[in-house]
């Protein structure tokens, strides 16, 4: 639980849009609606992301006190995903290929048949295993208009952004990732500074190729 313990590694996202007047009720409804529905072998989805309680990926019945910590909305962004052990898939594929060859009397399987077999193998494996569950802390400081998401991973951020959009997009709320420009904009740029920003060039000149090769590290 990086938000609660240990050192903090996080990315900031700035919330764009105004909170509606009855935002606590509306946020709570949207969050409950987007609480994770655990992935089951019967589902068509291979991956699913939804909210859970912060610090407890298996707590998915979300109450008001679980979510609202004074001026913070604290949640976990949980992702369920099927992760197949490569060696087990290969072994079952080999078995399947043998059966196919015996039944059809053919030496080789076509590309489409192999894909169908792989799909069948994975579907069967899903019934014998559990999806991988991971959760990342998410803390929305309502009075700052900032979300702190406790991961630097691009994929994790993309999943969280998609979930945020599905949950709160109807309230015209969106997230802008922190970057040198977005922070500058938030701090306030004058008109002259904004046009200077558009004209910026790197200060450090590219070194001559000869110089670089001469000083190359071993």
């Amino acid at each position: 639980m990086p938000a609660l313990r240990g050192s903090l590694t996080y990315a900031r996202f700035f919330v764009s849009g105004e909170l509606p007047e009855d935002f606590r009720q509306r946020l709570m409804r949207a969050i409950r609606l987007r609480a994770i529905q655990p992935l089951t072998p019967e589902d068509e989805d291979l991956e699913r992301t939804g909210f859970c309680r912060i610090g407890d990926p298996y707590a998915i019945e979300l109450g008001y006190d679980d979510v609202f910590w004074n001026e913070y909305v604290n949640l976990g962004v949980r992702t369920d995903r099927w992760v197949y052990p490569g060696s087990a898939v290969r072994a079952r594929m080999r078995e399947g290929e043998q059966v196919y060859k015996q039944k059809t009397g053919r030496d080789k399987m076509g590309r489409r048949e192999k894909a169908e077999l792989k799909e069948l193998v994975m579907r069967r494996m899903r019934k014998q295993m559990s999806p991988a569950v991971s959760a990342i802390d998410f803390s929305w400081a309502l009075n700052e208009g900032v979300v702190r998401f406790f991961s630097h991973g691009d994929k994790a951020a993309a999943r969280m952004l998609d979930l945020f959009h599905r949950a709160f997009g109807s309230m015209s709320l969106s997230l802008v990732p922190e970057a040198p420009y977005t922070l500058a904009d938030r701090l306030g740029l004058s008109k002259a500074e904004r046009s200077a920003w558009d004209e910026l060039e790197p200060s450090l000149a590219e070194p001559d190729v000869d110089d670089r090769e001469e000083g190359e590290e071993a």
């Binding site: 050192s7 903090l8 590694t9 996080y10 990315a11 630097h152 990732p177 922190e178 970057a179 040198p180």
Partner: peptide, 13 residues
Amino acid sequence: LKGDSLALSGLSL
């Protein structure tokens, strides 16, 4: 502090 994102990592308090 990371340059490209200005994100913090390993913030130890």
